[in-house]
Design a protein around this nucleic acid. Structure first.
Lengths: 199, 199, 199, 199
DNA sequence: TATGAATGAGGGTTCATTCAT
DNA sequence: CATGAATGAACCCTCATTCAT
């Protein structure tokens, strides 16, 4: 990467991070492109050299941030000696929840915008180092030799959706109960889903 | 209800329905108050006699529409002779899914805006006839004499979130699979959640 | 005054007083007719039975409030045994200043709207008890037997303008100095103006 | 000043002058930003690149216009051989009055909005060539070697307020007398105020 | 590539006034 | 006399996008 390309990457990252801090603090609707470039110290016209519009930038951001969560969860998992696939998944789910608890505005941003398509894209065509981590976890589950699952993708999809949608309500509004009270039920349901997919 | 009050209710309902058709077709962000009043044939200023702003109207709309879905599902259930609580829940879930399949824009609107708080509000303080139907279903589950559940509210919350979030992806984008392929897994998971809550 | 007329006077006074409190607190530009009638607990349409518009009401209000200041000043003067016309005028000026110091928002309201025409109208055609008091003071100066002034109206005009415009700046913004520091110079100038008009 | 900066100055001046003609003809309250930009032939959004709002523009305008009056008065004074400070002040007052007589709408605009703070700002931090002229007159009075005044700032403040407020009524409404009849009394009072400040 | 002044359509909101009740 | 729902013109202001530099 030469100096010019490096400079471009710095500009692009700066726009992404400025947008992220604004999206999570003010919400995407109330964040204007003027806000983003001002926080980046970049000229308004330059924005359009990097992104088509605000929503183009948002899409880039979601995959990146979602996969960063998985990366951290996976890093933590590696430090343990868990080797049971059920426990591994629960461990990762728990790590994701804890990260989101610590950063509710990230949770709000991701939940409102996340879709399974984002993960699919990351699996097929990761554009970023972080996105490989989701791929790693995915293949670890599907390529297990000791435990085989029927339709592992559907299983992971259901787990992901159940976890992310219940956490949204529980973490942000403590509805119907706070996240710590919800966890036992949630983990139980995750195990249940996995068992039913086990061949 | 005298003539003047009736006239006001007609205006209010007209605004709600105009907004609904616009929200579902164009999305809430791209729908302006000008659009809504124009479709209603009502003056712009009149809007503010009924709603604080666009989001105030939206909140009224979501509870109403979500509960209408339950009303229809419940009506259909009454025409069957199902009396097993597990089958009843599956029947209702299936009815909701079918309604949403037939109306994907309603699904998009509701999913993006629904929260458990909406249901809670409808349970505690129903402002509309429709909202009573959700209450009926809720009490039917919790007041069963033959089957008792531990924490029935959490159970229903988890079922609701699992169903609505997986349907969103599956119905609208066929991700990871289309809704008919997903149903067996989904119903299976719902039964699993219920069994684990059964005392 | 029969019951119906009394009721009308009460409504009218209520509108005047509500308007006054709003004009002095929010300013006349930011006060709407809706605000006024709401504070009065009177219907919007009723406003137009009493006043042509907001500015019609304002004009009624200024003469009333300005003359009330003179009434109070004159009441205080009567309790003293001052009989020198120079001292009398200074006493009244001082009383007016003290009243305005105690009520800066009244000062802002009056100064922005007062004109010599208001006083002239009050002299020629007082519509209110309060307005007679300005007339009293005026005639006391002009009809003196011991001291005669050349063009007493111009003299009073100049004193009034000098006092009101310097007080505005001094009381509200302490520019160029606070009112207590200004007083000696002001009284001195007032005496000077009187002396130069003395025949 | 390069071409771009020059272009910006032209736009800014155009907005100021358009606003001035509208403020003096229709009044500030009835002048909308749409009016101003339309008269300037500039786009609405452009207004906000130069001024925060209508009142921000007004504040810029008052200092500019008030100081222009002094500039012209001072220019005229230089063409005479008056060297007596009393006569100089009277000459300037007379020049100001004559300018305002010739331009009553300017008088109305300035009187309603002028405050001593405006002059103070011009003395301390002149942002415009014109504003230096007020500074010149001010220092000419205060730095005299032949005649010394006690508190010259207060003296000038009182003269300014007396002249501007009496002129407003006299020029615009001939109340209590027309300006030519008022002048002798006014000049007399001005001289009186100066004498009383003379050490 | 980068800039940022300029645009102008279109957003939300207010409010004096009317008029049927 | 009194009401207050309804009006709709007019307001201020934002902002994505362009383009000459």
């Amino acid at each position: 990467m030469n100096k010019l390309e490096l400079n471009k990457k710095i500009k692009r990252d700066s726009l992404l991070e400025s947008a992220f801090s604004l999206f999570t603090s003010k919400g995407i609707n109330k964040t204007s492109i003027s806000d983003i470039v001002q926080q980046s110290g970049i000229a308004k016209g330059t924005f359009y050299l990097y992104f088509k519009d605000k929503y183009d930038l948002r899409n880039m951001l979601i995959a990146k941030k979602a996969c960063q969560l998985f990366r951290k969860a996976d890093d933590e998992l590696l430090k343990t000696d868990i080797d049971n696939i059920f426990d591994e998944v629960i461990f990762i789910v728990n790590s994701l929840i804890n990260q989101l608890c610590a950063n509710p505005s990230l949770l709000a941003f991701i939940s409102k915008n996340l879709s399974w398509g984002v993960f699919k894209t990351s699996l097929i065509n990761p554009v970023d180092d972080d996105e490989l981590y989701f791929y790693n976890i995915y293949t670890r589950v599907t390529n297990r030799v000791d435990v085989k699952f029927k339709d592992p993708e559907i299983m992971l999809f259901m787990i992901t959706e159940l976890v992310s949608s219940t956490c949204y309500s529980s973490i942000l509004y403590s509805e119907p109960v706070d996240i710590e009270s919800l966890k036992p039920y949630l983990f139980d349901s995750v195990r249940g889903i996995m068992k039913r997919h086990q061949i």
